[in-house]
């Protein structure tokens, strides 16, 4: 199953809530959620822990737009829009944590 998050974990609980409820699978961070996958962010250790239970992806164009592509956390995979589509197609279902 694919979980999509689009809000920064420092202003919105969606990523935290997803990590509490979701039972493995893949997580894609898009829009403001990409900050969660960057070094030095207060969420870094939580994301590191999450990476042991989930495969974590981050959308490269959103990282680029925010000037954050040079500080992506190790273990997180960057994908482009084509990769985004592949993730939605290759998973049985998908939940957007609004």
């Amino acid at each position: 199953m694919l979980h999509i998050i689009n809000k920064s974990p420092l202003e919105n609980g969606s990523l935290d809530n997803c990590l509490r409820v979701a039972n493995g699978g893949e997580i894609l961070l898009i829009e403001d959620a990409v900050y969660a996958a960057t070094k030095g962010n207060a969420f870094e250790s939580k994301l590191g822990e999450a990476a042991t239970r989930f495969k974590i992806y981050v959308l490269q164009p959103d990282l680029d737009a925010r000037g954050m592509s040079d500080r992506i956390i190790a273990g997180v995979t960057a994908v482009d829009y084509g990769g985004f589509v592949d993730l939605t197609v290759n998973n049985k279902n998908c939940q957007s944590w609004l």
């Binding site: 979701a22 049985k92 279902n93």
Partner: peptide, 12 residues
């Protein structure tokens, strides 16, 4: 979480 994994369609 387990129940969610079983679904064909999840609407948020």
């Amino acid at each position: 979480g387990a129940l969610m994994n079983e679904q064909d369609v999840v609407l948020s």
